[in-house]
Amino acid sequence: MSILVNRDTKVIVQGFTGSEGTFHAGQCIDYGTQIVGGVTPGKGGMEHLGRPVFNTVKEAIRATGATVSMVFVPPAFVADAVMEAADAGIELAVIITEGAPVRDMQMAKAYAVKNGMKTIGPNCPGIITAEECKIGIMPGMVFKKGTVGLISKSGTLTYEGANQVCNEGFGISTAVGIGGDPIIGLSYKQLLPMFEADPETEAIVMIGEIGGDLEIQAAKLIKEQITKPVVAFIAGQTAPKGKRMGHAGAIISGTAGTAKEKMEALEAVGVRVVVSPAEIGKAVKEVLSK
């Protein structure tokens, strides 16, 4: 078991033949992901990485039965691609593209929700079910199979957290990089209950950062619905006010969205909050040894 994706998941790649799409789709195939084809408008009928290329998502679904799309389309066209996937009946779109205009993503997300399509990202490393299915750009070898679910706004902190968990002798069930843009798809709120329901997952690591209030909402949800132990880290305790730290989401204004506020909210509902990401592995060991 795992959440959202596993070894049977059939995946297409939108933006398949571009340089990013080609490189990462190749890496996913090597990992064992069932990449069943790709979409590049105008290149339908070709073969790429030994997989068929289609002009439209609808054609790709008809021919391959894919349910998930990994999106590498450039920022100016990514909303269009995501809406096409939703329209065609894709169940989950994993949007890797960085630099998508916020207004475009707002529209694409609203359309995806209306069509019942889940989204992850944009501007994220993707999702991986350890040793089964990698849909994204994360280094596969870091994620050894195990019982810890991981949700993170940050890409490299996802790898850092997973690596520590594995070094402590545990492993990962599924890890999801949700991205830190102002508009994102699946977040703690949807993913925490999925991990709670997954029999394979025994503990959850959540990595957040300053800005927005998703972690505060997560704290409320943990109190009401989550019985499995949760370890959390919030990046940006030392970030200066009002400064932008790479992610568009990491903006603090006034007191709303500070690391301190989020850490306190999570601690108050029994989450094991660590002050440094270097402590994630140890904290997981601690909560799982209880």
Binding site: S154, E160, A235, Q237, T238, H247, A259
Partner: peptide, 22 residues
């Protein structure tokens, strides 16, 4: 990575040092 960069600054602070930059 922005998240790890902030996490690194936080860790330096936690260890008793002060970050000069992000």
């Amino acid at each position: 990575g922005a998240g790890l960069a902030m996490g690194t600054m936080d860790t330096i602070n936690y260890m008793g040092g002060t970050p000069a930059n992000f």
